[in-house]
Amino acid sequence: MSTPETSAEFQHQSKPNVGHDMAGQARHTAERVANAASVYGHDAAQHFVREPARDLFSIAKDYAREKPDVAACWMFALGVVVGWKLKP
C-alpha cells in the first residue's frame, strides 16, 4: 500500500500536469480558432473585395462599349484631375 507521503507527492505531481494539459488544450483551441478566422477572412476578402471590383470593372467596360465618346471624355477629365493633384 502507499504511504501518505507518496500519495501527497503523487497529488502534487499530478496538478502541474493537469495545468500543463489544460494549457496545451487552450493553445490548441486558440490555434484552431485563429486558423478558422484566417480562412473566414480570406473568403470574405475574396467575396466582398474582389467580386464588387470585378463587377464595377465589367460595368465600366460595358459602358465604354455603349458610349465610347462619353467614356473617353470621362477618362480625359480623370487624367487631368489626377495629373493636377500629383503635380509637385
Score class of each variant (00 low, 15 high):
Val81Thr: 05
Pro4Ala: 10
Pro16Glu: 09
Ser14Pro: 05
Gly19Glu: 14
Pro88Leu: 04
Arg54Cys: 07
Thr3Phe: 02
Ala36Gly: 13
Gln13Met: 13
Gly83Ser: 11
Lys85Val: 13
Asp62Pro: 00
Met75Tyr: 03
Met22Leu: 15
Asp69Leu: 02
Gly79Ser: 10
Trp84His: 06
Tyr63Arg: 05
Arg32Trp: 04
Pro52Val: 07
Thr6Asn: 04
Thr3Val: 01
Gln13His: 08
Pro52Thr: 07
Lys85Leu: 12
Glu5Thr: 11
Lys15Ile: 09
Ile59Trp: 00
Trp84Leu: 11
Phe10Cys: 04
Val80Trp: 04
Trp84Arg: 11
Glu5Lys: 02
Ala64Cys: 03
Pro88Glu: 10
Gly41Ser: 15
Val81Glu: 02
Gln13Glu: 12
Ala30Val: 05
Met75Leu: 01
Glu5Phe: 05
Gln11Trp: 04
Asp69Ile: 00
Val49Pro: 10
Phe76Asn: 01
Gly41Lys: 14
Ala45His: 09
Gln25Phe: 05
Phe10Ile: 12
Gln46Ser: 13
Lys67His: 14
His42Val: 11
Ala53Tyr: 05
Asn35Tyr: 08
Arg32Cys: 07
Gly19Asn: 15
His12Ser: 12
Leu86Asn: 13
Leu56Ser: 08
Gln46Cys: 13
Val70Thr: 07
Lys67Gln: 12
Pro16Ala: 09
Asp55Cys: 05
Trp74Pro: 01
Lys61Ile: 02
Tyr63Asn: 06
Thr6Ala: 04
Val49Gly: 00
Phe10Leu: 11
Tyr63Gln: 03
Asp69Ser: 04
Ala44Asp: 13
Ser38Val: 03
Thr6Leu: 04
Asp55Val: 05
Ser58Phe: 08
Phe57Asp: 14
Thr3Gln: 11
Glu9Tyr: 03
Ala34Glu: 07
Thr29Asp: 13
Gln11Asp: 10
Arg65His: 04
Lys61Phe: 00
Ala37His: 12
Ala37Arg: 10
Ala45Tyr: 10
Phe10Asn: 11
Ala36Asn: 15
Asn17Trp: 07
Ala34Val: 01
Val82Cys: 00
Ala23Ile: 03
Ala37Gly: 12
Asp43Ser: 15
Ser2Val: 07
Val18His: 06
Ala44His: 12
Gly79Val: 04
Gln13Ile: 05
Gly41His: 12
